[in-house]
Amino acid sequence: MGDHFEIAVPSRASHLGVVRAFFRALCEECPGFRLEEREVTEIQLVLQEACINVIRHAHAERPDLPMRIRITIDRGTIVLEVHDRGRGFDPDAVPEPEAAALQEGGYGVFIMKSTMDSVEAVHTGDGFVLRMTKLRVPARREVTSG
């Protein structure tokens, strides 16, 4: 079992920076969270897209409702869970955007699914959780000769 970290923020776009900063702070302050800068930016983007979905859809009419972001990390995985009070959606049912057709929307879920190793929909008693898991590349062992 890894360590859990959790925040709850109102469902407003003006608070997305808090979510990004939360994840960056974990990476900078917690020894077990050391990631490459590229990975930090990728996961910040995934969190941002998941929260934008909550703001636009699940809590569109009730921005005062909190969205809860729970992050669990251990040696092998990073798990991001975004909780809301909406009815949820099936990420597998969201079609890939067609860039060649100059499609303007639909990139958010695609970014989440492409960046993470799994994206699961979990319906709970009081809402919905989007659970996203990324497998971590094991730290390279030092090879010594002789």
């Binding site: 860039a99 100059l102 303007e104 958010g108």
Partner: peptide
Amino acid sequence: KFTDSEGLSALVSLYR
């Protein structure tokens, strides 16, 4: 410094 799906959407909109 940072781009999300809304930023991509803005780029596509500009192109259109």
